[in-house]
Design a protein around this nucleic acid. Sequence first.
DNA 1: CCTACCGATCGGTAGG
DNA 2: CCTACCGATCGGTAGG
Lengths: 215, 215
Amino acid sequence: MSKISARRKIAREAGAADYERKRQEIIQAAAAVFRDQGLGNATMDEVAKRAGLDRASLYYYFTGKRELFREMVGAATNDNVEMAEAIAASQGDAESKLRQLIIGLFRSYERHYPYLYVYLQEDMDRLPSDSSAWSRRILDLNQRFDSAVTGIVGEGLASGVFTSNGSPKLIAAGVLGMCNWSHRWFRIDGPRSAEEIALIFSDIVLRGLVSSPPR
Amino acid sequence: MSKISARRKIAREAGAADYERKRQEIIQAAAAVFRDQGLGNATMDEVAKRAGLDRASLYYYFTGKRELFREMVGAATNDNVEMAEAIAASQGDAESKLRQLIIGLFRSYERHYPYLYVYLQEDMDRLPSDSSAWSRRILDLNQRFDSAVTGIVGEGLASGVFTSNGSPKLIAAGVLGMCNWSHRWFRIDGPRSAEEIALIFSDIVLRGLVSSPPR
DNA sequence: CCTACCGATCGGTAGG
DNA sequence: CCTACCGATCGGTAGG
């Protein structure tokens, strides 16, 4: 019996719900391990221990480490891009859009914790070169996300709402860096919520970008 | 001095210079590989290829991958901390200090390229747990660096030069994130010099932090 | 006896 | 879901 049909059989007998629940448990456990150790250093043995089952059993639910990683970051990154594109396409000036984006991003980090951080801490350019459909999709998502942010900044500069010597791309890189670097220090049980942090950061960035009224 | 010992001395001196030169060549090659692949994924074989010698020969010059990494990032991080502490201890208000720090940091990235990026892209908390003297030293340097930056921000808030709802630590994390994330996108042969980028970023951050005069 | 290596192979561990 | 095990690969080291 093939792996797929074995899965189907189990799914029928024990219920697809159990199978799926177990998968989610494993993803949770794996995410904690990946976050702590990094994808490369993390071992499947460690994941198994954290999930409370034998290492070999992981391969019943997932084809391997790579699939585990992909499933945990795929949905989260997708959400993220949709959020950014919705904000970019919305009504309002660039200032409010950029603020919404920073807030949306931090909320996303919190809601999907730690999936997006697991993703952020891996440099996709450096992951074992693999021109798979997944890699191409995630690269496309990344580009769309960057485009949305760069677009908002560019809009702000063009309309005169923002003032800066930097290009939209460079400014976007700065703002995103400020947010993304939080993967090194943000803790879900820390003193500040993601939203509080987002507000403070967006205050700084927007005061820094928004053109001062003439005095 | 006997003929023999004279010869030995010359041989030793010429050898030592060659030896040191060779070491530096290897460090250069290894830095490029570590930067491209990340420390964990990089193989000594790749380093050897890039350096143009046999893999086994690397072990004549370095005890291993770890020593290679340490030597390349050690000096650079040390410079960095001294720079930050000198700025923190200097005359001037927090605004000019923070600007100097951002500029100093980007200059440092450029000058030590890619050593500091090799360091930044590794999460020291996650490197194979090793409470060696080196690890303790580098951790201490990190703390001193953060303290210097946090100190400058705190000084700015306390003196009223800066206005923000954020703590010095949080603001410092934001500013440093903006700079540090450049390890993902800054290229030494890119369109902007490190200094240009630093000026643009510090304009944004400082306009965002410096208290507006009452209108 | 030291230097700068090389070809071959070790022990240990990873994913599967 | 486990026990036993593989093929491959890595960092590091032996003798010459």
